[in-house]
Write a protein that binds this DNA or RNA. Structure first.
Length: 686
DNA sequence: CCGGGGTATT
DNA sequence: AATACCC
C-alpha cells in the first residue's frame, strides 16, 4: 500500500487529502503522503528537518496504531476472498499465491482463442510472447492483481502497488519498480535484470543489516559478488542454511511458500520516552501498556498464556541495540480472567513487576527509554465463557457478576503461589495435562446455573432463548470434557473454527473506521479531477476516472479490453484505466454501483447477501430468538448478520505444500483459521 | 537504528 | 531470551 498510515489518515479525514501530510511518532515523521514528498519530506525524517523542508506540513500523530491495524486486517481479509494463501508482511504488504487462481482462469479461458496481454507494466518493457505459456500465466496473474487493486480501492479506498512474478522475492522486488499505485509483472527472461539492478546486497529482502555487514567484511557488497561467491566461504561465515538461502536470493531464486498468516501470534503495546527512572513511573507506564493490551486481547477473544516485558535502557554511548526482555507463563487463574476488563490488572502488574526486577535492580539508578508489554502464546479460549462473557458482562452489575472469591484475595494467592524465579521449573508451567479441565467451574450456584461461567449476568442469561442457554451450559461441560480430546489438538489448534451460536457473542466492535466505499471517495475524486494537487492527481490518474462506478463486464479477458493485437501490454495509465474498469472483480455485486453506494464495507457485504441469490430477509439461524436479537446493540446485530451470511458457504481448506517447518509450526493455526472468513475473525476466537 | 509494531530461528 | 529479519 502507498504510504499506508498517511492513506488511512486521509481516509479518516479527507480534508488532509490535498495537503502535505506527515505521520508523527515521537520526533520522527514515519511516513508521509506524496504531496509531502514533493517537498522533500521522506520516511523516518526528523520532525524539525521535515518542517524545514515543508513549513506547511500537516502532522498527525500515528503512535496509536489501532486505525492502521484495523485497516491492515481489512485489506488482508479482502485478499483472502481471492485466495486463502495470503501472507502478511508488516501492516501494509501481503503476498498472495495466485497459482491456483491462474490455473482456474486459464482453464476457463482455454480454447476461446483469445490471448490476454499483461495488465499494467511489464518489467523493463519486455515484450510478452502470447505463445509462451509462462508469459501467459504471468499475464493472468497480472489481471488478478488488477482485480485485487480495484477491490482494495473500491471497497476500502486504498491504493497500492502490486508485483506479479514467479516467486515472493521477485514479486516484491518488481512491485516497487513503478511507484505509487501501479503494478508491474515480471517475465522470466528479465529475472536477472531485476535482481542485478540492485546495487547492494542489503537491498535484497531477507538480507538485513547484520548479514550485509558481514558480507561486506568478506568483500561481498554487490549482488554479483554474492552470486559468484564459493558456497564454502559463505557456509563458513553463516552456516549452511543461511549461506544457501542468501546465495539463492542473490540469484533471484526463492522457494519459500506463501504461508497464510492468520490471526497474529502475539500482540504487544509499547511506548518510548526520554526518561523513566522511578518505580512509580514504571508502574504507571506499564499499566498503561497493559490496559491497552487487555482491550485488544479481549476483542481478539483468544487467551494469552505468556507475558513478556521488554525494556530499553539508556546508555550514553551505546544508545541503540539494547533491548532486554523477560517472559513468564500466565497462571491459569489469571489468564482465564482476562476476557472481562480490569480484574486481571493487579495480578498481571504483579507479574510484570517481577519480570522488571529480573532486569533492573530497583535499588540502583536506572534510566529506561522504552517499555513494551507483550501477550503471546495465544490460544483459543476453550470454554464458551470468555466469549459469551465478553458480551454478557458488559452491562452486568458488579455485584451480580462477581464470583465468590474476593478478587484481592485471589490476587494475593496468585502472587504467593507462583513466584517467578529465574531458574525454577515453575510448578505452574506443568500443563494441566490431559484430562484436566482448564476452565474453572464455579461451585457456588445450585440450579442448573451452577455450571455457568463466573462473571456472566444472570439477568441477561435468563432472557436468552432456551436453546442458547443450553448451549452455553453445554459449552461449559464441553470445555471441561474437551481438554481430554485435546491431547493432540491442544498444542495444535490455537484457533478452532467457529462452532455454534456462542461465537456470535464474542464479536469485537466493528472497526471504528469511517466508511470508505462511499460518497467521500467519489467526491474526493471529482475534486481532485478538478485540479487540486499534482500528487493527488498523480495518484488518481492511475485509476480510471470512473473507477468507483466499476461494474462487471463479463470475462476478465473481455475483448472490450482491447488488448494490444499481439499481446503487448499497455503502458500505465491506459492499462490501469482499462484493467481497473473492465476487469471483473470477484466481488462483482459489491463493485456494482448499486450496492457499493454509500455503504461502509460491512454493510455492503450485507447488501451483497441480499442481492446475491438468497432473498430471505434476515437469514437467522433457527436457534436465534428474534426478540432477543432485536435487543442486542446495533453493532452486535450487524456483526451477527454478517457472520450468518458468511457461514452458509463452508469454504474448504485447500491443502498446500509448505516447507516442513512452516507446516510444523503453523499448519495448525492456518488450517483452523482458514475456514472462517469473517471480517472480524482476527478479533475474536475463531 | 529512529517508531510501533510483527515474524522466525537459535 | 536473544538475535535475526520484515514493514
Amino acid at each position: 500500500m502507498d504510504c499506508f498510515y498517511a492513506q488511512v489518515e486521509m481516509i479518516r479525514n479527507p480534508e488532509l487529502r490535498n495537503k502535505p501530510l506527515g505521520i508523527q511518532q515521537k520526533y520522527i515523521v514515519v511516513t508521509c503522503n506524496y504531496e509531502a514528498r514533493k517537498f522533500g519530506v521522506t520516511k523516518l525524517m526528523l520532525i524539525k528537518d521535515a518542517r524545514e523542508k515543508c513549513p506547511q506540513l500537516v502532522l498527525v500523530s500515528g503512535e496509536d496504531l489501532t486505525p492502521y491495524r484495523e485497516m491492515s486486517y481489512r485489506a488482508t481479509e479482502l485478499l483472502e476472498e481471492f485466495s486463502p494463501q495470503v501472507e502478511r508482511l508488516g501492516f501494509d504488504e501481503n503476498y498472495i499465491d495466485v497459482t491456483e487462481l491462474v490455473d482456474k482462469k486459464l482453464q476457463e479461458e482455454r480454447g476461446n482463442g483469445r490471448n490476454p496481454g499483461v495488465c499494467g507494466h511489464v518489467y523493463s518493457d519486455q515484450k510478452m510472447n502470447v505463445n509462451n505459456w509462462a508469459h501467459v500465466r504471468i499475464a493472468a496473474g497480472s489481471h488478478i492483481a488488477s482485480e485485487i487493486r480495484a477491490a482494495l480501492y473500491n471497497r476500502l479506498g486504498l491504493t497500492g502497488c502490486a508485483g506479479t512474478a514467479s516467486n515472493k522475492l521477485l514479486a516484491k522486488l518488481v512491485s516497487g519498480t513503478h511507484k505509487p499505485n501501479q503494478q508491474t509483472a515480471l517475465l522470466h527472461e528479465s529475472h536477472s535484470h531485476l535482481i542485478n539492478s540492485l546495487d547492494h546486497v542489503k537491498q535484497i529482502p531477507g538480507i538485513g543489516y547484520k548479514t550485509s555487514k558481514r558480507l561486506e567484511s568478506l568483500g561481498l557488497s554487490r549482488i554479483s559478488d554474492l552470486q559468484a561467491c564459493p558456497i564454502t566461504l559463505l557456509e563458513k561465515e553463516f552456516g549452511s542454511s543461511v549461506a544457501h538461502r542468501i546465495q539463492m536470493l542473490s540469484r533471484g531464486e526463492d522457494d519459500s511458500a506463501v504461508v497464510p498468516s492468520g490471526p497474529p501470534q502475539s500482540i504487544s503495546d509499547e511506548d518510548s520516552f526520554k526518561k523513566c527512572s522511578t518505580v512509580s513511573e514504571v508502574k504507571i507506564k506499564m499499566e498503561e501498556r497493559l490496559r491497552n493490551l487487555l482491550v485488544r486481547i479481549s476483542k481478539d477473544g483468544r487467551i494469552p498464556h505468556t507475558l513478556r516485558l521488554t525494556i530499553r535502557q539508556f546508555s550514553p554511548s551505546n544508545k541503540w541495540f539494547n533491548r532486554e526482555s523477560r517472559q513468564c507463563p500466565i497462571p491459569a487463574h489469571i489468564s482465564q480472567n482476562i476476557g472481562a476488563e480490569c480484574q486481571a490488572v493487579p495480578a498481571l502488574m504483579e507479574l510484570l513487576m517481577r519480570l522488571f526486577e529480573k532486569m533492573i535492580d530497583v535499588k540502583m539508578q536506572f534510566h529506561l527509554t522504552l517499555l513494551n508489554v507483550c501477550f503471546s502464546n495465544l490460544k483459543a479460549s476453550n470454554s464458551t465463557r470468555s466469549s459469551i462473557g465478553f458480551y454478557l458482562t458488559r452491562k452486568a452489575p458488579p455485584a451480580a457478576a462477581t464470583p465468590l472469591k474476593g478478587s484481592t484475595e485471589a490476587e494475593q494467592h496468585t502472587a504467593e503461589s507462583f513466584p517467578l524465579k529465574e531458574n525454577s521449573s515453575a510448578p505452574h508451567t506443568a500443563p494441566q495435562t490431559v484430562g484436566q479441565p482448564t476452565a474453572p467451574v464455579p461451585t457456588n450456584h445450585h440450579t442448573m446455573l451452577e455450571t455457568l461461567p463466573e462473571g456472566i449476568d444472570l439477568e441477561v442469561f435468563s432472557q436468552l432463548p432456551e436453546e442458547i442457554q443450553q448451549e452455553i451450559i453445554a459449552g461449559q461441560r464441553h470445555a471441561a470434557a474437551s481438554s481430554s480430546s485435546s491431547v493432540r489438538s491442544a498444542s495444535k489448534s490455537q484457533a478452532a473454527p467457529p462452532k455454534g451460536i456462542l461465537n456470535f457473542f464474542s464479536r469485537a466492535k466493528a472497526a471504528d473506521l469511517p466508511s470508505q466505499c462511499d460518497g467521500v471517495l467519489l467526491k474526493e475524486h471529482s475534486q481532485t479531477n478538478r485540479g487540486s494537487t499534482e500528487a493527488t492527481q498523480g495518484a488518481s490518474s492511475n485509476f480510471p476516472k470512473g473507477v468507483v462506478d466499476v461494474r462487471p463486464t463479463g470475462s476478465l479477458w473481455d475483448p472490450k479490453q482491447e488488448m494490444h493485437p499481439f499481446g503487448q501490454s499497455y503502458d500505465t495509465d491506459q492499462s490501469a484505466e482499462r484493467c481497473g474498469t473492465t476487469a471483473e472483480p470477484m466481488d462483482s455485486c459489491c463493485s456494482s454501483s448499486t450496492s457499493c453506494g454509500q455503504l461502509p464495507p460491512q454493510s455492503a457485504e450485507m447488501e451483497c447477501a441480499k442481492a446475491g441469490g438468497d432473498q430471505e430477509r434476515a437469514p437467522f439461524p433457527h436457534s436465534v430468538d428474534v426478540n432477543v436479537f432485536s435487543q442486542l446493540p446495533e453493532e452486535v446485530q450487524r456483526e451477527l448478520m454478517a457472520e450468518w451470511k458468511q457461514l452458509k458457504p463452508t469454504p474448504k481448506i485447500p491443502v498446500r505444500k509448505q516447507s516442513e517447518k512452516a507446516k510444523a509450526s503453523r499448519g495448525k493455526r492456518t488450517g483452523a483459521s482458514a475456514g472462517a472468513s469473517s471480517l472480524l475473525k482476527y478479533f475474536k476466537p475463531s
